[in-house]
């Protein structure tokens, strides 16, 4: 809970004063979550560029979806830029807590150098598996004074009453935590409810 709003505001203002372009990292995951995050991206302007997509190495579906999304985008914005990176998944569905800690640490070995290389201004994440190690990496870079990224977490539309495990963790470590159902907003007061956004 060491990320207070005051630090956040400073960063936001800094970002505003220095540049209107971002180096954004977006995190994309298996299944419906990829579709969800691409819908969110569909409305963002080209200020959110270049886009670095990171997803789990066990994810076979996302790459094609992202490529087709970016291809369409390139028809509108000819200078459009993006990269794709894979990291080991930190947690498979139904994996136990203790072994998740080990796999998350293993995933960190990849996500920390990657996050250092990309130095994102903004991290947008929405789901299982891979966003926790990447966000921890970004927080570490921030603590070391290397680069402070703004973390925006969007909980999946599937979550009506309870948060996902990633959501429960990142509720405390994200700058903006967005939920898509009013029940969750009531249970988690720090969250932001903008209606259904995917």
């Amino acid at each position: 809970m060491f990320l207070q709003d005051s630090t956040l505001n400073t960063n936001v203002i800094l970002l505003y004063n220095t540049s209107h372009t971002l180096t954004a990292v977006y995190f994309v995951f298996t299944g419906g979550h990829t579709t969800e995050i691409l819908r969110l991206l569909s409305c963002l302007s080209e200020s959110y560029s270049p886009r670095h997509y990171v997803f789990a190495d066990s994810d076979t579906m996302s790459e094609a979806k992202i490529r087709s999304f970016e291809q369409k985008r390139a028809e509108t914005f000819s200078t459009s830029q993006f990269t794709l990176d894979r990291i080991p998944r930190s947690r498979e569905v139904r994996q136990s807590w203790t072994s998740s800690v080990v796999t998350t640490l293993y995933s960190m070995l990849y996500s920390l150098p990657l996050t250092y290389r990309r130095k994102p201004d903004l991290i947008l994440c929405n789901g299982p598996g891979t966003c926790v190690p990447v966000c921890i990496s970004a927080l570490l870079l921030g603590l070391l004074g290397i680069k402070r990224a703004i973390i925006v977490y969007v909980e999946s539309i599937c979550r009506v009453e309870t948060l996902s495990l990633s959501g429960k963790i990142l509720y405390y470590f994200s700058d903006y935590f967005i939920v898509q159902w009013p029940d969750l907003k009531e249970k988690y007061p720090k969250s932001i409810y903008l209606g259904r956004i995917v």
């Binding site: 971002l22 969110l40 302007s45 925006v152 539309i157 898509q180 903008l194 209606g195």
Partner: peptide
């Protein structure tokens, strides 16, 4: 079932990041 509104999310992000 009305479609979701990702444009609200874009507007929100633009505002908090100061992007015009």
């Amino acid at each position: 079932f009305p479609p979701g509104q990702p444009e609200k999310f874009a507007l929100f992000l633009d505002q908090v990041l100061g992007i015009q």
